[in-house]
Nucleic acid binder design. Structure first.
Lengths: 398, 398
DNA sequence: CTGTTAGCGCCTTCAA
DNA sequence: TTGAAGGCGCTAACAG
């Protein structure tokens, strides 16, 4: 391996000078710089990352942790991760803008049982991004002692670490309000996910609040699923088994994957969506617009979640000791036809934050996207520039 | 930051002993070990990765490079990466089995224009996995001088680096053969992708060979797309514009994304699939089974590509200097109904390698999956165990 | 069984 | 403008 010393010797200068040249410092004579650069090129020298990290006491690496449900590893229907893939790309963009690197870790267990691995990981990075409630709060605190940590899609009320998440509560509320007010649905079935997932708690709150606010509306049953398509199929079958005689007006699924599964089960049984039962999902993952009918849902700005989380982390590394904050990003209501809107509907509307959502408390938060731009299903318009976005709302935990 | 010295001092031993305890070596008295462990726990010591890497001259990190088409960054329809996401999980599994880490880099440009970044990356990892033809061959060679490199989905004929890829040629041949022999299709339209992509070259070869082998069959036109849904829509429209009067019997798309786009365009124009035109894709990404009709395609073992690439890389790191080899993984034909098979069809058949595909040359390669197991569309059977697979075929480049 | 002691490759004052 | 030299935190002989 070629080291700094090799270059220095070959160029007839000291290692300090070579180092200066590499980092583009100016206190080097032009001739010298030229000579050094020529040698670097000729020898194909590349600085060793480990040595750099050790010396400058900074690794310029951030870790990204998400769960990998081993059980279904080879199940085609495992789309749980579609979500994180998108988030990860946001992170990737944020990270590489600053020249840093991204270290990925797929955790096996949902709970914190693999904590040793996490802890060890903290010795290899300058900061960590953790996907939703992968790690229980107390363990998070322990992690924070070593490196700054930002949780993505965690509970907006988390107090020990920074959180970046989407306005799930308002999104859910918007969905249900739409079903009630635009389509007159009154009897709901809730295909839910695991009880402990932070995002889902918020969605539940949104659902319940809207139901309560509308006399005559109620939830006639629910299914404890696990966010996969398969689980959605089961939810659908369970629904048919228990309420086949008098179907609900609408099914609210915990996410799009489940909605897709439910749709399959209902269709198979000859139940028409949305004529017999309306159906809505959450997240706006791509496949949701391919089903028949396309699924009405809420768009989470996944990529931006990643980017913001990254920015927050960088921020924390610069000045640690700031109070943890929650940052809640606005969501959009995506109207397609599974809710009862006419076939061909494809509209995207900013969601107005409901009371209690972290977003609602701020002044500018309610803005969401500035205009209700409908997007055609097969929209041609290439958007060469990143769409202008309003500032995300930030709220210091109090 | 707590270092090895802190622990050593606190426990009243030398750093060497602490190091031994950490690495579970046995040449430590039990009492000592206990005491040290207790101190480690109390102080919350975590070894510094950079220092470890520097000292043991091994980083235990492998880099994974894939492209990120910035242009469409916020385009919902950008599914180009669905493929790599899957591959990456395979890599993730392979990597973490050995306790190593995965460093992700999203490259901006397809070509090698961002080579400096790659080169620099090579100083931070012990080996690199590179997604298909992201990097031109000569640059790859330069990279190989520093660290072992394995290309995923690269050309099976590549001579400078190791390659792990799927049997694209045979898959494509199987698809076309099916269209001809099972459905009597004769006039084909080819919705192709970028000319230089290795996988696509192979698919083209498979297509052409089968066409040539069947007198009366021919390709009546093609479209140079770019593998996205949007590009598929354009291909469909182009097809309608140029051959609207006498449609082809079948459209062969370069991948599933394009097939989905084509389906949208055809459906929109009132052309029925498969009655008027049959349609097939490639890759077997999830959304392909949701469209109406579901798309017949070829299943690439993406996850396994990642795993095998990983294994190959590890192998190379142990003994460098071995001749680069190509490893070609078997694919499956996935019959659904867009090809003309009856609605509800969902069958998965191992593809028999064609002559010239690297797989064909080996004895066991032709095995593919051991049985032609049909899989129901909403298959319930949870497969708790990893499906038993035949050995992938390995071929030393000659 | 345990301690001593060189490095690993680079960065960064401090002097010259 | 350049060089000399002391770490960064850990590992791995080599001695005891």
């Amino acid at each position: 391996m070629i080291t700094l010393y090799d270059v220095a010797r070959e160029a007839g200068v000291s290692t300090a000078t070579v180092s200066r040249v590499i980092h583009g410092q100016d206190r080097v004579r032009d001739v010298t710089r030229q000579r050094v650069n020529e040698v670097i090129e000729r020898l194909g020298y590349v600085p060793d990352g480990a040595a750099q990290s050790l010396s400058r006491r900074r690794k310029e690496i951030i870790g990204f942790v998400c769960v990998e449900s081993r059980a279904r590893q080879y199940d085609v229907e495992n789309m749980n991760l579609l979500y994180y893939d998108e988030v990860m790309r946001g992170v990737g963009a944020g990270v590489s803008d600053s020249g840093w690197s991204l270290l990925i870790t797929y955790l096996n267990g949902e709970n914190g049982q693999d904590f040793p691995r996490l802890r060890n990981l903290s010795g290899k990075v300058d900061g960590m991004l953790i996907g939703h409630a992968v790690v229980p709060s107390p363990l998070l605190a322990r992690l924070t002692e070593r490196v700054p940590v930002v949780v993505i899609a965690g509970a907006p009320g988390e107090t020990t670490v920074d959180v970046v998440t989407a306005d799930n509560r308002s999104g859910s509320a918007a969905l249900v309000t739409h079903l009630i007010e635009a389509h007159g649905r009154k009897r709901f079935y809730h295909a839910d996910g695991p009880a402990h997932v932070a995002d889902l708690k918020e969605r539940r709150l949104g659902l319940e609040r809207v139901i309560r606010a509308h006399p005559g509306c109620r939830v006639i049953g629910s299914f404890p699923g696990e966010l996969s398509v398969q689980s959605g199929v089961e939810a659908g079958e369970s629904l048919l088994a228990s309420h086949g005689a008098s179907l609900p007006d609408a099914v609210v699924a915990a996410n799009d994957q489940m909605a897709i599964g439910i749709l399959q089960a209902l269709t198979q049984a000859g139940v028409r969506v949305p004529e017999d039962v309306a159906l809505v999902g959450f997240d706006d993952i791509y496949p949701g617009c391919l089903s028949d009918p396309p699924i009405t849902t809420v768009h989470q700005p996944m990529r931006m979640l990643g980017e913001r989380a990254c920015i927050r982390l960088m921020d924390r590394m610069v000045r640690p000791g700031l109070r943890p904050r929650a940052e809640v990003l606005p969501v959009d209501l995506v109207l397609r036809s599974s809710c009862g809107c006419p076939p061909g509907t494809a509209m995207r509307l900013p969601v107005t934050p409901v009371r209690g959502s972290r977003l609602a408390r701020t002044g500018n938060g309610a803005a969401g996207l500035s205009t209700a731009d409908g997007v055609a299903r097969t929209a041609r318009a290439a958007r060469p520039q990143r769409a202008p976005r309003s500032q995300p709302a930030e709220i210091t935990e109090s």
